[in-house]
Amino acid sequence: DVEPGKFYKGVVTRIEKYGAFINLNEQVRGLLRPRDMISLRLENLNVGDEIIVQAIDVRPEKREIDFKYIP
């Protein structure tokens, strides 16, 4: 289970104008929005990159997770 405030290693699987989709595993995916990136820009991410993200909002009923990147 993903818990708000905890850090997780994930893989960038898709990049859109509104953010990057990060997979923690095959069943768990969330969104990293540009506003939640500190010292990292969306255009510097590539599909396949491994990054450490912090879960900031977890909505299991909608199967949605918002992430934050903190270097």
Rank of each mutant, 00 (worst) to 15 (best):
D1P: 14
V2S: 02
V2G: 02
V2T: 04
V2E: 02
V2L: 09
V2W: 06
E3V: 15
E3F: 13
E3S: 12
E3W: 11
P4Y: 10
G5H: 07
K6C: 10
F7N: 07
Y8W: 02
Y8F: 05
Y8N: 00
Y8Q: 01
Y8I: 02
K9V: 12
K9R: 14
G10A: 06
G10T: 02
G10Q: 02
V11G: 02
V12D: 00
V12M: 01
T13W: 07
R14G: 08
I15G: 00
E16T: 14
E16D: 08
E16M: 14
K17Y: 14
K17R: 14
Y18D: 06
G19C: 03
G19H: 03
G19P: 00
A20R: 01
F21I: 12
I22V: 12
I22K: 00
I22Q: 01
L24D: 00
N25P: 04
E26V: 13
E26I: 13
E26T: 14
Q27A: 14
Q27E: 13
V28Y: 10
R29I: 13
G30L: 04
G30W: 03
G30R: 02
G30K: 02
L31H: 03
L31D: 01
P34E: 13
P34K: 14
P34R: 12
P34S: 11
R35K: 14
R35G: 10
D36M: 07
D36I: 02
S39K: 13
S39M: 13
S39D: 15
S39H: 14
L40M: 11
L40C: 08
L40I: 12
L40E: 05
L40G: 06
R41E: 11
R41L: 13
L42R: 03
L42E: 02
L42N: 03
E43C: 10
E43Q: 11
E43R: 11
N44M: 14
N44K: 09
N44H: 15
L45Q: 00
N46D: 10
G48A: 04
G48T: 03
G48L: 05
D49R: 05
I51P: 00
I51G: 00
I51R: 00
I52S: 06
I52W: 13
V53S: 00
V53Q: 00
V53C: 04
V53E: 00
A55D: 00
A55F: 04
I56M: 14
D57M: 13
D57K: 14
D57W: 09
D57I: 11
D57A: 15
V58W: 08
P60R: 10
E61C: 07
E61S: 13
R63F: 12
R63S: 12
R63N: 14
E64M: 12
E64T: 11
I65K: 02
D66S: 10
D66Y: 14
F67K: 02
F67E: 01
F67R: 01
K68Y: 08
K68H: 07
Y69K: 02
Y69D: 03
Y69P: 02
Y69N: 05
I70Y: 12
I70A: 11
P71H: 10
